[in-house]
Amino acid sequence: MNAPAIDLRHSTPAGTIYAGPRSMAALGRELERARCRSVVVVTSPSLADAPSYRLVVETVGNRIAGAFTRVRQFSPTDVVTELANVIAQAEADALVVLGGGSAMVTARAATVLAGESRPLEELLTRRDDHGKVINPRMPQPKLPIWIVPSTPTPAMAKAGAALRDPVMGRRVAVFDPKVRAAGIVLDPTVLSSSPAGLFVATAMNGLSMGVEGLLATSGDPFAEALLFQGVREIVANLGAVAEHTDQFEPRARVAMGAILAGQGSDYSGAGLALALSHELAPKSTVAGGVVETILLPHTVRFTAAVVAHRVPVVAAALGAVEHTIDGIEIALRQFGEALGLPERLSQIGLTEPNLQAALEHAVEDWAMNARMPRRAGLDDLEMIVDSAW
């Protein structure tokens, strides 16, 4: 008898998503249902005086035990440690995170650090001698995290945390499935508050993860469904966000697409464009999603060379006229052009002399894992960056 063709493990994490004008009230009910009495609110300095922050604090009410408003871009490890100390001192029993990806990632990593009570260095994702990604065991319970996003980042759906080590000058990561969000609240006031340009740039991270994820999920129809619909929601609605800057409906649809892409990419890997962006974006003048937009046509062409059967699926998700690799590239370029995004790496403040070390770090990035259909070495990354320059 032939062995079965299907060999699949697909676990569906628990979580609740609320969207619409009643969503913030639902957050209050969820905190009450969970009997939370010591909640720490986490956000960035840019939102600390905003109506969105006041709305969240009002919703948390007398459950609030502390506020951390010092989140920084790229989630530096020293800020993570600072928040972990706040969580411990407040004896927190939940976190409510307001803002974008940096706030979410910082909160997740700090929750792990506070829960495990070990040095951060002992908790970092690493590679063994064979290049396999190893996540240390995290046996301790973790606090529930509720997310109130202001931008449509796939980080809403994740359990990992990519951090910036300011001493080493590179990305590190922490992963614990217990810090995946207990719930996500898509509130009209909060989600409509971020500038359209920031919203668009962030959404492109979800598009990148969705597209590259579709190249890597031929054996998992559940992941493919998540990724396909995630890409469709972003492509169908992001133009309306750019055109009608603060309308909630298209913003909510894009945010839902980012959540779907974040969920689906758990089973496919995050993608080559993201791995490169982790190193290039901090050296540029633009957000990581914009860097991924520039790289995506080139990374897709690189990967598609070994998974040609996935090309029509990606093309269909993007709404490409031709279901070929050229059709995908045209669709991606036209989409980025319509949104006013740059097309070349040379346009975003990068200088060629500072790229070599970044590429060497990107080879070891946590996003470069065995689930990628085609693993890229340093020479491959140099070729991709040259073609995108």
Results as ranks from 00 to 15, higher is better:
166 P>W: 10
290 V>R: 02
285 T>E: 13
43 T>Y: 04
77 T>I: 14
75 S>M: 01
332 L>H: 04
268 S>M: 04
361 H>N: 15
199 F>V: 07
310 R>A: 13
12 T>K: 12
223 A>G: 01
308 A>P: 13
124 L>T: 12
234 I>S: 04
258 A>P: 05
113 L>W: 02
345 L>C: 09
195 P>Y: 12
155 A>M: 14
121 E>W: 07
378 L>I: 14
183 G>H: 11
315 A>P: 00
220 D>S: 13
309 H>G: 13
235 V>A: 08
143 L>H: 05
369 N>G: 14
387 S>Q: 15
308 A>V: 14
299 T>Y: 08
294 I>Y: 02
222 F>N: 11
328 I>N: 02
172 V>T: 13
321 V>K: 12
85 N>R: 15
215 L>G: 06
365 D>C: 04
220 D>Y: 05
55 L>K: 12
141 P>T: 11
49 D>E: 14
200 V>A: 09
232 R>N: 00
172 V>S: 12
127 R>W: 04
189 T>W: 11
328 I>P: 00
148 V>A: 06
116 E>I: 03
340 G>Y: 08
141 P>I: 10
320 A>V: 02
346 S>Y: 04
155 A>P: 08
299 T>D: 10
205 N>Y: 08
221 P>F: 09
339 L>I: 01
185 V>D: 06
21 P>L: 12
300 V>R: 03
140 Q>N: 15
222 F>E: 14
253 R>C: 01
309 H>I: 09
281 A>T: 08
179 V>H: 06
89 Q>M: 11
181 A>F: 11
298 H>N: 05
378 L>G: 07
386 D>G: 10
10 H>N: 03
58 E>F: 03
132 K>S: 11
337 E>C: 07
212 E>S: 02
238 L>D: 01
79 V>I: 13
73 Q>I: 12
41 V>C: 10
60 V>Q: 00
98 L>G: 04
168 M>S: 14
237 N>S: 10
317 A>T: 01
203 A>E: 09
111 T>A: 15
116 E>R: 12
283 K>M: 14
373 P>F: 08
196 A>C: 09
217 T>K: 05
63 R>L: 03
18 Y>I: 03
352 E>I: 05
198 L>S: 11
18 Y>V: 02
328 I>E: 04
83 L>Y: 00
280 L>R: 09
268 S>W: 11
230 G>Y: 05
200 V>E: 08
170 R>G: 00
268 S>F: 09
188 P>S: 07
154 P>Q: 02
205 N>W: 05
123 L>S: 01
143 L>V: 03
349 G>D: 10
47 L>K: 10
40 V>W: 00
120 L>R: 08
128 D>E: 05
128 D>I: 09
57 V>S: 12
110 A>G: 02
344 R>C: 05
132 K>C: 06
117 S>D: 15
8 L>Y: 01
129 D>T: 12
100 G>M: 11
45 P>K: 05
297 P>Y: 03
368 M>I: 15
156 M>S: 10
288 G>H: 13
33 R>A: 15
341 L>Y: 09
203 A>S: 13
237 N>F: 01
